[in-house]
Amino acid sequence: MTISTEFVAGVIAGGVLGWIFDRMLGTKPWGLIVFLMLGFVAGVFNVMRASGFAGARSGRDTPRDP
């Protein structure tokens, strides 16, 4: 439940910020499109971070002596 909430929150926040940006600067629909994409990326990053997929190194990349 938490992981889906992280993703949805990122997309909604991006959409709201894009809508506000468009209203203030009159750049319909480009601000909404750009900020929705940024919100999607932020949501995916938050899901990866919450699931432990991002940032965790297993140590397999380091060479070992035979």
Rank of each mutant, 00 (worst) to 15 (best):
G26C: 06
K28H: 05
D61S: 10
G18F: 00
L32H: 05
G43V: 11
A56P: 07
L32F: 05
D61G: 12
V16L: 14
P63N: 15
F7N: 01
R64V: 12
P63M: 15
V41F: 11
S58G: 09
P29M: 07
S58V: 06
F53C: 13
F53P: 12
V11R: 03
F53V: 15
F21I: 00
M24C: 02
G14N: 06
W19G: 14
A56K: 10
R60M: 05
E6A: 13
R57D: 13
K28V: 06
P63R: 15
P66D: 05
V44S: 13
G26I: 07
S58A: 10
S58W: 10
G26Q: 00
L38H: 03
F35K: 00
V34E: 03
V41H: 01
A50K: 10
R64P: 09
N46K: 13
L38E: 02
R49M: 13
A56I: 14
S58L: 09
F40K: 01
F53H: 14
E6Q: 13
G43P: 15
F53L: 15
D65V: 15
G26E: 01
A42D: 04
M1A: 08
L17D: 09
V8T: 13
A50E: 09
L38P: 01
F45E: 12
G39K: 00
G31P: 01
G39E: 04
S4Q: 06
M1P: 07
M48G: 08
A54N: 11
